[in-house]
Structures are given as structure tokens and as C-alpha cells.
Design a protein around this nucleic acid. Structure first.
Lengths: 206, 206
DNA sequence: AGATTGAACGATTTGTTGATTATTCAGAAA
DNA sequence: TTTCTGAATAATCAACAAATCGTTCAATCT
């Protein structure tokens, strides 16, 4: 039945409209069903529940974002450090703007984060994979030197946790957050130990 | 009137007992007053309100902890890196155990953090001062090389935010958190850039 | 005078009720 | 048969009432 996939999409579209206009909690399954000219009960043949509809919408949106991140991480003409910089900044800016400008997105994000803790882990794992690729490439170019890339990527994520859910943590403004991320990134890249310190303004492309 | 200070202490002690037995929200000003054999109204000659009593208790407790941290940060026979390590680990362990084992402490922490956002900032600033001292000392020894120590300290705090309020962020166990903090610390200390990498394994925490 | 009280006030919390809503499933429609 | 429906169910939410509690202050005590 190739119909199923298109019906699924139809439901997703209807729900997306409702969620973004009225919010997740304020839209009822009955409304979504009626938008699709079907009974509430029928929705459950396509999704296990309301939350799963929201999760599907979020997943779809997030995967577009992931593609974007991958492009940034693999931009060939830039240094690894520049790409790591852009990667983390892009992520900060995206979530900041998304959650700042519309309360609907914020509501959906908190609901999913709360009821589906695995979803956040899945996102982290995806981004980690990108960071690992970036580190691999950086090693090939001789820019970074790390033994265990998987672990290093995990630690980069730990250290930048504050910037991944900016408004859950602090009421800092975007410029302040950017300044801090800039500093943390510098710390990560150069380290504290007094080793030969090279000119740290940007490198030439190899 | 030298009585005032002792009465203040008396109130603080009574409140501390109540708070730790029954929790902040479940103890009433009337109860605290009666424990001190005075009327509820009289409490307000010593404290502006209930929250200020809680804040005073927290401050007292925290200042003991600060002294402890200062001792760690200035232990003369250890390297700066070892001391930074111990400093951050001590903080992680303290808050983890405090909030883990008793829900009363957790309640007080969240109430104060929520109603008195400046308090958290004050704590951060205090710890930052210690880190700055540590960095100063490290530079004197030639261990670390940082231009702006105030900013560097701020960035160290940013990067280790996840470990400062462990259970607000994640449901990770203490060992997992310790492993991560270990990794982040290594990242901060050594950096990503491929510079001369010295043997770092001889510094293990004692 | 200054120190203390406790009744009174308003805000917050708690308990209760009724309505909404997600989800199910026996049966109707295809 | 498979696909869908919509009334039934149980859980959650909203609204309102009652009670509780933090805080104030006019009156009382020392």
C-alpha cells in the first residue's frame, strides 16, 4: 500500500500547521484528524500517538539542519579550526533564533526533550559523527592531533553544552553567548599549557 | 545591641533544622518563630523574608566550601594542572552528593536559584576569583600561558558548566560525569592544535 | 523611647469538581 | 477481508473555593 506514506505526510503537514499556529498542547488529535478528513481513531493507524507526530516533524526539520551542518564541516577551502568554529556557531544561532522568536517551537522542544529523552541523545550522536569526521580530516592535514577522535568529539560537546540549549541554561543574550563560545573554542583549540604559541589569528588554507 | 547577632543565629539554627527535616516549602515562618519562642512578626526584624533566611543558610554553608576550594587551589606542592583538576572535581562531587542524597537540599537549591538568580552569579564569581589566582600562580611557574586570566577563568567555567549543576542537566551517574570532566579538562589543558605534546601522564590526581 | 506581639490582609497553595482530550476498540463500511 | 469510524474510557487539565501561609502594622508591653 503506497497510500500509507502519502497519508502519513498529509497528517504530518496538517499537524505541522496546527502546531505552529496554536502550539502543541492547544491542538487536539480531533482537529488534526478533521483537517485530514478522517476520524481521530484513524490517526493511530499511522502514528502511535500525538507525541510521535511531533517527533516526526522535529526529526524531519532536524535532518535538514544536519545536512547543512555537514556541508559546513566539510567545506574544503577552510581550516579545520574555522570549520569547527562555524559548526558550533551555526548550531548556537539556529537554536537561539528558533526558540527565541517563536514560543511554539520552544514548547515543542521542551515537550519532546522531556518525554523523549532519547531524542536529544540521538541529535547529539549525529552531531558527534560530524565532529569526528572533521577531526579525522584535521589530522590528515596535520592541524589537530588527537588520539581518540570519538572521545575528543564527546568532550568538545561536553564543553560546549551551554551553547547547545542556550535558553534552558541562562538568560544570556546572543552576543554574549557568541563571545563566550568564541572564548571556549579558543581554549579548546589552543589549550592552557605553555607550549609554543603560534600566531592564532586565522590560518592560511592548506 | 550585641544581642541581635545571637538572635539571628538562633533563628538560622531553628530554620536550618526545620528546612532539613521537612523541606523549605513545608516549614512555616510561624513554626520557626515558635521554635525561637517568638512571634512570626518578630522574625522580620532580623530577616526581610523567608527566602533570605534560606539564602543566609546557603551562604554560610557555601563559604565553608569556598575555604576548602581555596586550600585546594593553593596547595603548594602540586602542579597547577593537578590543582585545577582537584578544584573542579571537588566541586562536582560536592554538588552531586549534596543534591543526590537529600531532596531537601535539592529543593532549597532550586528555589534559591530560581528566585535569586544573583546568588548563582555570586557563587560563580567567587570560584572564578580562585581560578584566576590559580592561573596567576601557574604563569609564575611557567606552567600555563594565558594573556587574560579573568577571561580564561570565565571560559573554564563555561566549558565545565555541565559539571557544576550535574543533575539539572543530565541524569548521568557520578562515575560517568567524572570521566567526562576528566576528558574536558584534558582538552582544556592540552588543546587540539598539533603542537609539541609533552608527556602528560605523570600528573595523576593523588 | 524601643521591642514585641498577633490579628488582619493579600497572595499562594490545596483540594475538588467538571470539562477536555488522548487513546482504544467494537462494530460499520469498503 | 481490510479500512475506517465514533462512542466509550481513562487520564489530564481548568476553574473555582477553601485553607494556608508570608508579611504587615496598629496596639501592647518593657
Amino acid at each position: 500500500m503506497p497510500e500509507k506514506v502519502s497519508v502519513r505526510c498529509h497528517i504530518l503537514e496538517a499537524a505541522k500547521k496546527r502546531f505552529s499556529h496554536f502550539g502543541y498542547t492547544k491542538t487536539t488529535m480531533a482537529e488534526v484528524a478533521s483537517d485530514c478528513s478522517m476520524s481521530p481513531g484513524n490517526l493511530y493507524r499511522f502514528f502511535p500517538g500525538k507525541l510521535d507526530i511531533a517527533e516526526s516533524i522535529a526529526t524531519e526539520d532536524y535532518e535538514r539542519h544536519l545536512d547543512h551542518l555537514r556541508k559546513i564541516a566539510l567545506a574544503p577551502e577552510k581550516t579545520a579550526r574555522e570549520r569547527l568554529h562555524e559548526l558550533l556557531f551555526e548550531e548556537l544561532r539556529r537554536t537561539y533564533h528558533k526558540l527565541e522568536k517563536d514560543p511554539r517551537a520552544y514548547e515543542m522542544a521542551t515537550v519532546i526533550a522531556h518525554e523523549r529523552p532519547k531524542f536529544a541523545n540521538w541529535m547529539l550522536a549525529n552531531e558527534r559523527r560530524i565532529i569526528v569526521e572533521l577531526l579525522d580530516d584535521a589530522e590528515r592535514r596535520g592541524e589537530f592531533a588527537t588520539d581518540d577522535k570519538e572521545t575528543t568529539a564527546e568532550m568538545i560537546q561536553s564543553a560546549t553544552m551551554k551553547f547547545r540549549y542556550p535558553q534552558l541554561w541562562s538568560k544570556l543574550t546572543l552576543p554574549k553567548l557568541e563571545r563566550e563560545l568564541e572564548g571556549v573554542l579558543k581554549l579548546i583549540a589552543e589549550g592552557l599549557c605553555s607550549q609554543r604559541r603560534e600566531q592564532t589569528s586565522h590560518h592560511e588554507a592548506a
